[in-house]
Amino acid sequence: MGGYWQHLQAVSRLSMTAGLIFASSPAVLACGYHDDVSMARGMMNWVYPEALHVLGAISTAVAERRLAPPLSDKAPDLFGSRYRRTAEALERFGEALGESADRMPALSFSIVLLEPMLWTRYEAAGGRLRTQVHVTGPKAGDLVLVSGEAVIGGIVAGRLATGEAIERGLIRLYGSESQKAVFVGAFRSAGNARPDTIKPAAMSRAAQSVAGGETAMPLRSVPITALSIRQSTAFGADGTLACGPGHH
């Protein structure tokens, strides 16, 4: 998991939890590969019905060569550079949305990127969008966007319009119908390479590299939550309870 992981731990309010789940008693790990990122991602499918259909849509888009595949990045992720690239892309996504809107609606929303399960909140304030990468989750009542790294990369690079991404199921929206309508209405063209707003040269390096798929694989993070966790020693003496849902 390398530097990216460490970085997340450092900023995580719940680095304790993360550390516990991954590196403590074997009993905790009784479920083996059921790391909590995968489980949190899996549960998206229940919490936001069919949220994981985004993954299928991305697969289809990559197979049809509409989206860049992830590169198999073998270089070690030093100092969390992968995280920084994704974070920059998310910032840039906020900017792209802002630039595309003729009139900025008073709509705050949160986006989760499924691969790292990274939540970002875009808060509408004073006609601008304020980006907070790496938040604990959506605020109650927020419109929630579910998407993936390559999609945001494509939009930021001006190769994919937000509206098209929504149409193709690459971004799914969860919220009231009016929230969705406002979002689509305001931001549908974000990502359409319009010479007056997006010049490739002006694109940040982060955006380019993300678009190129360099964020690649084990981009992992934990959804962070404000739950207080007590370190329990009761990991089920035989490890069975600790296993929980992890079986196979």
Partner: peptide, 23 residues
């Protein structure tokens, strides 16, 4: 939590409950 849009928190709460035998 799930119904009020805090599904992500619910998910982690469930995971933690399992991992820590507090289910």
């Amino acid at each position: 939590m799930i119904q009020s849009g805090k599904g992500a928190d619910a998910a982690i709460a469930i995971i933690v409950a399992f991992s820590h035998a507090t289910f």
